[in-house]
Measured scan of single mutants.
Amino acid sequence: MAEQVALSRTQVCGILREELFQGDAFHQSDTHIFIIMGASGDLAKKKIYPTIWWLFRDGLLPENTFIVGYARSRLTVADIRKQSEPFFKATPEEKLKLEDFFARNSYVAGQYDDAASYQRLNSHMNALHLGSQANRLFYLALPPTVYEAVTKNIHESCMSQIGWNRIIVEKPFGRDLQSSDRLSNHISSLFREDQIYRIDHYLGKEMVQNLMVLRFANRIFGPIWNRDNIACVILTFKEPFGTEGRGGYFDEFGIIRDVMQNHLLQMLCLVAMEKPASTNSDDVRDEKVKVLKCISEVQANNVVLGQYVGNPDGEGEATKGYLDDPTVPRGSTTATFAAVVLYVENERWDGVPFILRCGKALNERKAEVRLQFHDVAGDIFHQQCKRNELVIRVQPNEAVYTKMMTKKPGMFFNPEESELDLTYGNRYKNVKLPDAYERLILDVFCGSQMHFVRSDELREAWRIFTPLLHQIELEKPKPIPYIYGSRGPTEADELMKRVGFQYEGTYKWVNP
């Protein structure tokens, strides 16, 4: 592979701008107003304001973009700056750019259920340069409990009458099928589907988006991507930290609602779906819905739930269990780990287990898709061969690698495990991989909904998990304890083995 010439960040961002501006969906010269509902909250200060700053800094926003914060707290732009700027990672050389960014910011205080507050917000936006005809993007960085009041008031008082209007809704989209349907029906009564952007930030990850290209742009994968060759698929999300004093919020939802029903299920769809007619948003989402419709409700015998306990040999936070978090209700049975087996009941995947695993306070930070292939028929190497695996590593250190057998150097035919490896950090030294939120917010500006969740996708996802969630809430089974920093409950490994996964433990990928 030829040595790549190092590029400056300015040059890299210039390439990104060229890609972005050559499309006809990006209205570079139009006025846009980006409204952050819930501007005083954690999500706004840690993710949304920093993301908008990065896009502005790199010249990736339309030229005439204004940012308006809205929340109940009586704040000023200076207050917003004070709480969000520490997350910007701005350099001293960017000081003038930073001043320009905050000059485009404003803030309006108001209630979430008060019509007069929204009329005041609308008047404020109209007073901005060309504000009355601007395109408006409303980001709901809010708890779902206020979605209905907020969307109703936005629709009645704050819509642009000339430009387009788009609304970005953060997960969780309800707690179960019934609450999700209620919320979807409410929002759909106010906005068209092409105006609604239900954001799952995992769909903005580079390697998640790469799944489609790997599958449908490489001839070698087509013939082997089926039940005849693939023994099982494992989708993993692991965090090495616990709730760390923020367990009160987590306890309301648990690990299945927080990660599995959305992030992991979306990745499953991209692995299992048929080739779409095109890369058009609805063509892709149509195929994802077909996959979900082929999955039956989760069966309790295919589920393992766990909850982390303190590690007596650990240090600091590792010595504390979930129930030691003062914000967690006493005696909570909320799971911090889950392993679930699903089956896609169609011709391509009949009988292939899709194993979804996620948890907190585990032994490493990792998100990946792992396809394990069947054993080689007619073994001539005296059971020395391990199964081939194709691994798409989402985070950290984005990579695609194939675990395969090669001859060990020497005189004899002794096979050993090795890999074919594409590590993004080595291959793409001159490429700026956008943060997931950067990519998705740019998608909203461009009107691309491919990486957002459609209402029928959402409904099918909740259909699969709601009976299990209701059973857990009714019966309150005690989750299996696992030690902070471990791989999780051993019962999860036993479940995976029972459905056909072979864990060798003899080879570990190392970032080159």
Rank of each mutant, 00 (worst) to 15 (best):
Q111T: 07
N153P: 00
E156T: 09
L96T: 14
K238L: 13
Q195T: 12
L7F: 04
I67H: 02
F191Q: 00
L235A: 11
K82H: 13
V12Q: 08
G163R: 02
H32I: 14
D176P: 05
G222M: 09
F216I: 02
F87H: 09
S189Y: 05
L96F: 12
L43M: 09
F138I: 02
A109Q: 12
M37W: 01
T76F: 04
F216V: 02
P240A: 12
R198P: 01
R166D: 00
L137G: 04
K89D: 11
F87L: 06
R219A: 15
Q195Y: 02
N165G: 04
N210K: 14
T31Y: 07
H32N: 05
E193F: 02
A134Q: 07
V233Q: 02
F216L: 01
V5E: 12
D181K: 05
I224G: 09
R57Q: 02
S40K: 04
M125P: 00
R219K: 12
A149N: 08
W53F: 04
A25H: 14
L203T: 15
L235R: 01
S160T: 10
W53P: 00
S29F: 13
V5Q: 13
D79L: 04
I167F: 13
N165V: 05
R227C: 12
I167H: 00
E148W: 14
E193R: 01
S189G: 12
D200T: 12
Q28A: 06
D181W: 05
K171I: 04
G254Y: 00
Y112N: 03
T31F: 09
P143E: 12
L128S: 04
S40Y: 04
S157Y: 08
N185M: 12
V150L: 06
R120Q: 10
T51V: 06
Q195I: 04
M159A: 08
I162H: 10
A6R: 09
D194W: 04
T236V: 02
L55D: 01
N105C: 13
Q83G: 12
I154N: 00
S188N: 06
D228T: 11
G41A: 10
P62W: 03
Y147D: 07
E206P: 05
L55A: 13
K171Y: 08
D114M: 07
Q11E: 13
H201F: 07
E170K: 09
F88C: 05
K46D: 02
D200G: 15
A6T: 12
E93K: 13
E85S: 05
L211Y: 04
C158I: 02
G163F: 01
L55M: 15
G163E: 00
F138D: 01
K46W: 08
D200Q: 14
E252W: 09
H124G: 03
Q4S: 06
P62R: 03
T31S: 08
S132K: 15
I80E: 01
R182F: 08
L96V: 08
D100K: 10
T145C: 14
S160L: 02
S117Y: 15
L142D: 07
W53V: 00
D114G: 06
L214W: 08
N165S: 05
S123Y: 09
M37Q: 00
K82M: 08
P50M: 01
L211A: 07
Q133I: 10
Q111M: 04
T145N: 07
F34A: 08
S29H: 14
V68N: 00
N105Q: 06
N105R: 00
A90W: 07
I220P: 02
T236F: 01
E148Q: 05
Q133C: 10
Y118K: 01
G131S: 11
G163S: 03
F21C: 10
S160W: 02
G59L: 02
I230M: 04
L60S: 04
R136K: 10
E99G: 09
P144T: 11
I167K: 00
E156S: 14
T65V: 10
L130K: 05
S160Y: 02
I33S: 02
R192W: 05
V77P: 07
L75V: 06
E85G: 06
P144A: 05
A115C: 11
Q83Y: 12
I154F: 00
R104I: 06
I35L: 06
R74M: 06
K152Q: 11
E3P: 10
M37K: 00
R227A: 11
I162P: 14
I199L: 08
R166I: 03
W53N: 00
P92D: 11
G23W: 15
L121W: 00
I15G: 06
H124M: 06
G69D: 02
D181A: 07
E85I: 08
S40H: 04
R246H: 13
Y49W: 06
E3H: 09
W164C: 08
Q11R: 06
I48M: 04
S8Q: 06
I234L: 10
A39W: 00
N105E: 00
E252Q: 10
N126R: 09
T236Q: 03
I15P: 05
I220E: 03
T243V: 14
R72K: 05
I256W: 00
I199W: 02
K47P: 00
T31L: 07
R175E: 11
I167N: 00
G69N: 05
S188D: 04
P223L: 02
G69I: 01
R9M: 05
F221C: 14
A116H: 13
K46V: 06
R9Y: 11
N122F: 04
L60K: 02
S189F: 04
G14S: 14
R72G: 12
R192H: 10
S160C: 08
L16S: 05
K171M: 06
L16E: 05
T31C: 13
R182E: 14
I255Y: 02
Q4L: 07
G222S: 12
D176Q: 05
K97R: 08
E193C: 03
T91P: 05
N64T: 09
K45F: 11
D79S: 07
I255F: 01
I33L: 11
L214P: 12
P143A: 08
I15Q: 08
L16M: 07
V150T: 10
L211Q: 02
Y139T: 03
L98A: 02
S157W: 09
V5R: 04
Q22M: 10
K95V: 04
P143F: 05
N126P: 01
R182K: 08
H129W: 07
R246A: 11
L203Q: 14
Q4I: 05
N165W: 00
S73A: 04
L183T: 13
R175H: 14
E244Y: 12
R219I: 10
Y107I: 04
A78Q: 09
G38M: 01
I255D: 02
L203Y: 15
D114C: 10
D200E: 09
I36A: 02
R136W: 01
V108D: 01
N185P: 02
S180N: 06
V108E: 03
V213I: 05
G242K: 04
G247I: 12
S84N: 10
A217S: 09
L60N: 04
I154P: 02
Y147S: 14
A90P: 04
M159I: 11
A149V: 07
R9E: 03
N185D: 06
D251W: 01
L142G: 13
V108H: 05
S180K: 04
N218Q: 00
S180W: 04
F253G: 06
V77G: 03
N229E: 04
I154D: 00
L203N: 15
M125T: 08
I255L: 06
A134I: 10
D181T: 08
V213T: 15
P86H: 08
N165F: 03
Y249K: 15
K82W: 06
V12Y: 07
R74V: 09
S40C: 07
I168S: 02
A115M: 09
L183V: 10
T31K: 13
G174R: 06
W225P: 01
Y197S: 00
L140Y: 04
K238P: 00
G247P: 15
G38A: 02
Q161R: 02
H155K: 08
I167T: 03
E99L: 02
P62G: 05
Q11D: 12
I255G: 10
